[in-house]
Amino acid sequence: MKELMYWNAISEAIAEEMARDDKVFVIGENVQESPFLATKGLVQKFGSDRVMDAPLSELAIAGATVGAAMAGYRPVCDLTFADFIYCAADEVLMKAAQQYFIHNGEVGVPCVFMGVAGGGFGNGPEHSRIPAAMVMHNPGLKLVLPSNPYDAKGLMKAAIRDNNPVCFFFHKKCMPMKQEIPDEEYIIPLGKAEIKRAGTDVTVVATSYMVNLALEAAKQLEGKVSSEIIDPRTLVPLDIDTIIESVKKTNRVVIIDEDTECCGVAAEIAQQIIERAFDYLDAPVSRLCAANSPIAGAAMEKYVIPQLPQVIKAIETAAGL
């Protein structure tokens, strides 16, 4: 066992996969020094032919990722900020997502689009998004949102080995997290949720950094509410079975997600719960998401993105208190 920081866990996963498969390479702006550290140290091990500092050209980077993937490589494309997926939208949403379909299921696009996501830095509307729902809305893309170092490592390895394009959004606020990581290799399959805390009163489905807020909230509510915290870990594929099982037990559920509320992640999960477990519900499915607003900067960010007090309140309300 060793302790790894969140970003270190990600770079270690990429390093292991690069060592294992010479078709894996990293492409993106500034990936050699790596502003968010998730690809730091790789160039020293694998050289600049496999850890490529690219031009400031998101379309070229994402497009080259798709092209190389279709031609047999497994690129890991670092978009820097996850927000910049909007700058590469055609190549990610239209091309990466749909080439397998267009090729009649004969040519896959095995690649990863990674980016640092979410609030916490106060940088305002163009650097604070977690564009999860948009990715979910484009069939063909998988979506991973690791909430801690252990998951980040195991999920990144699975993402690289997957035969599909996988968006991997790691969260700014998870950066300071440290965790024990086994020395042996492990992989966390995409599409397997984890119950991060067992409980009986209310099911809390939380994503990305919100998992950590939900766990803290559950701790503070101990004795008052017994919360079952589920981290889907990947939203595509979504392990709805684990969520449904929990809802059947607790009969109450709140979904906590940092993406914008309207047409969001929570709306999709809620609908699936309603379709499959309506008769088990003692209360309406509830949700707590970012407000339907651009992400405000500086001190105003906290009024757009859910914070601990709102998470506590949302769980209490869902529990019927």
Binding site: N123, G124, A296, G297
Partner: peptide, 21 residues
């Protein structure tokens, strides 16, 4: 105070500043 770092000044024609370059 809501933009984070974006510079704007409608009167002086600074209608936007780079976020996504």
């Amino acid at each position: 105070g809501i933009t984070g770092f974006h510079a704007v000044d409608k009167e002086m024609g600074i209608l936007s500043s780079a976020g996504t370059i």
